[in-house]
């Protein structure tokens, strides 16, 4: 990864970004710095109130353009400042899925909801139909085209919002806790889809998420926020191995890592780098069954 990244320009560059909501007394983001390269899959992790939503909204210019407050620093998307490019233009590059599913459905039908972004991009009719069909299939909502979005369940609404953003084929897709209303199977499906978009279409993905297991499995990189500050930024294997920091912040590591960590503390002889996913664990722990 790093070898290829060195040659590429970062697609997202956040420099010294701070933001204070107009009605708040404390900054929601403090001096955040990081970059994301094209094709990366980045997860943002943090407790409630850590600033995940604020950061996501900064990535397409909603902050500071549509939310009142004080912003410092810069956020560049493909070299363009989010202060200067209107959100509606930036939307052609950055797709956004918000955390509240019900409030982000604005059209009269499911089909219309997915079509909205495509219409605004000027996608020709025939292609529009193909993309809508594809997107609804991917999120498992085919057959509900004529339904009103308001009549869907919370999970269905969330998947519809993802379909609507996804169908626009943005270069960057930002998702703010997109699976909170989904059952485990639904969650799994959404992450499968995101992974496919990432692998097959090379879509850059930034996702705020609190389920560490899925982050460990799918993300290339994890950014941890705590009370508006960026604490760590690195590959999941590295980040989750720092079990002390993670638990100090009140977060969890994947259970397999936690398991290994505790065993190690008890004196078991385990590899230097603890596994972070189940498959990984099966590989690494096989043959370590015995005592030292």
């Amino acid at each position: 990864m790093t070898a290829t990244n060195a040659a590429k320009e970062p697609i997202i560059r956040v420099e010294g970004l701070s933001f204070k909501y107009a009605t708040a007394t404390e900054k929601a983001l403090k001096e955040i710095n990081f970059t994301v390269f094209p094709g990366e899959y980045v997860a943002i992790l943090g407790l409630s109130g850590a600033g995940k939503t604020t950061l996501c909204l900064s990535l397409n210019g909603i902050i500071p353009q549509m939310v009142m407050g004080e912003k410092e620093g810069r956020c560049l998307i493909k070299g363009q400042d989010t202060d200067e490019v209107p959100v509606r233009e930036m939307a052609k590059t950055v797709g956004m899925v918000f955390d509240n599913p019900e409030y982000q459905l604005t059209q009269l039908t499911v089909e219309g909801e997915v079509a909205l972004g495509l219409e605004n991009l000027g996608i020709p009719y025939e292609e529009m139909l193909t993309r809508i069909k594809e997107a609804l299939k991917v999120v498992g909502l085919e057959g509900l085209e004529e339904r009103s979005p308001m009549q869907l369940s919370g999970g269905q609404q969330q998947r519809l919002a993802i379909a609507a953003a996804m169908a626009m084929y943005p270069e960057i897709l930002v998702l703010d806790e997109p699976t909170t209303n989904l059952d485990p199977i639904g969650k799994e499906e959404v992450f499968e889809v995101l992974q496919r978009l990432n692998r097959e279409k090379g879509m850059t993905i930034v996702i705020a998420e609190h389920e560490v297991e899925v982050i460990a499995e799918y993300a290339d990189r994890v950014i941890i926020l705590d009370r508006g500050e960026l604490i760590t930024n690195g590959p999941p294997a590295e980040v989750f191995n720092d079990v002390e920091t993670i638990s100090r912040l009140g977060l969890r590591t994947p259970q397999v890592t936690e398991f290994g960590y505790r065993l190690k503390k008890k004196g078991h002889n385990l590899p230097e780098q603890l596994p972070i996913t189940l498959q990984d664990a099966v590989k690494k722990y096989s043959g370590v069954g015995g005592k030292k």
């Binding site: 549509m66 509606r88 956004m96 918000f98 604005t106 219409e119 605004n120 000027g122 626009m168």
Partner: peptide, 16 residues
């Protein structure tokens, strides 16, 4: 915010 994020009102040709 959602509408803006779907490029509603953006420049360029529109389809329906």
């Amino acid at each position: 915010m959602t509408l803006e994020s779907r490029a509603f009102g953006s420049s360029g040709k529109k389809t329906s």
